[in-house]
Computed example of a mutant assay.
Amino acid sequence: MFNIAETLHRWCRDARPFALATVVGVQGSAPLPAGTSVAVDEHGDAVGSVSGGCVEGAVHELCREVLRSDGGPVRARFGYSDDDAFAVGLTCGGELDVLVRRVDPAELPHLAAALADVVRGRPVAVAEVVDGPDGLLGSTLSVLGDGTAAHGTLTGGPVGSLLAEEARALLRAGRTARVTVGGNGAGCPEPVTALVHVHSSRPRLLVFGAVDFAAALSRAGCFLGYRVTVCDARPVFATTARFPHADEVVADWPHRYLERTEVDGRTAVCVLTHDAKFDIPLLRVALDLPVGYVGAMGSRRTHDERLRLLRELGLTPHQLARLHSPIGLDLGARTPEETAVSITAEIIARSHRGTGLPLSELAGPIHRASPHPVAGSVS
């Protein structure tokens, strides 16, 4: 639901009821992940998408029906139909499980508060029951960024306590996922499955070296939703005027800044200086941190010399294997803008375990489950 948080927040603020249709299960080559939502208000106005276009009409009508009825949440499955080319189905060949429920903002103040936090950029998790006893289907609870308290229709019982703990864990990991609790007879005899929607802080892109390539890369990183930092030891180059798309520009020695800043398993470190006096101390720190990506610009000769110097500092083969150098995918890039695309393409491929090959040369599903690296892991 957080893909449409701004509109839902506005509707909640206006006390406007709406139907919320959420992808709660994905099989095969479905185009959008679990947690993606579309909402329809009482005037028929819609926001969001659950399929990229394939079944939007059917989902819209189902939302209208849920708003008109007095019934509870409705589950629906949309899949591929070979027999009737005009039947409602996913042309990509996958299957989607969608949960549609009515939301009355006045009755769910915790949801309105969670959406407000998302709009403000604060971390929050909302657990939504998608399978289990009929009386619990569609019930929700929210956990705010500090994780100290849970709010919602599920709090107070064993199910709520278990789901709150799962929500806190996923909030720390920064990922949306399905979880199942109960079914063991100890206060929660029936299993309950919830989709935990997580909005975490933006992943970080740390760009070291205040060069033209850094300006293009900071712009690309901003477009992709990263919180971008540009750092350089030379104050004359590390200025906000030169990097308007960066969230922050830091004048400091790169390794010193990296030692004291906050990183996690989603952080990408890009070293663009190709100057040993900056690169080597910086890479020694970066390759020992639990970040998701470390790349360094330079020729193959520069790369070989870097490896030699890093080995002399005691870095292990496992640490050195984490270094992406020369940085980026082979796109034939020449300009700073093309190079930024090459670098971000490699970061995306690394994050989702993509091959970087043309899809036309590959077999199997186009859309694959993301590995969702956990904050603090080293892969």
Rank of each mutant, 00 (worst) to 15 (best):
D146C: 02
L32F: 10
T316G: 11
G156W: 07
R234W: 09
L359S: 09
P371M: 05
G48W: 04
H60N: 09
C270N: 06
A349L: 03
R311H: 09
D117S: 14
G121R: 03
V269E: 07
K277G: 09
L272Y: 09
A233L: 10
D247Q: 00
S139W: 04
D41Q: 04
H197Q: 11
D41V: 00
G295C: 04
T261M: 06
V74Q: 14
H372Y: 12
W253S: 02
R168S: 10
V124F: 09
F208G: 05
R120S: 15
V211Q: 06
H110A: 14
F78W: 08
P123C: 10
L144S: 15
G183S: 06
A214K: 01
R64Y: 00
Q319G: 08
L258V: 11
V98M: 03
I4C: 12
F223I: 13
W253P: 07
V26I: 10
R266Q: 14
A164F: 04
E6Q: 13
A215E: 15
L309I: 03
L320Y: 03
G79W: 01
V249I: 08
V38C: 15
Y257N: 10
R102V: 04
V129C: 02
A321E: 14
L309C: 10
P235E: 12
R368H: 13
Y257C: 12
A177W: 01
L313M: 15
G44Y: 06
H303L: 00
L282Y: 03
I348Y: 14
H255A: 15
I343C: 07
E346I: 03
D264A: 00
E6T: 15
P109M: 04
R101L: 13
G182A: 03
V100G: 09
R175F: 10
R260F: 04
R102F: 08
V130F: 01
G152A: 09
L90H: 11
V129Q: 00
E42N: 02
V269D: 07
V124W: 08
S49E: 04
F213C: 12
N3S: 13
A125H: 04
F237M: 04
A149W: 08
T273H: 13
G298R: 00
Q319C: 05
V269H: 04
R172P: 03
L357Y: 12
T153R: 10
V50E: 07
V249E: 05
P326H: 08
K277W: 02
A340E: 07
E165C: 01
C12V: 08
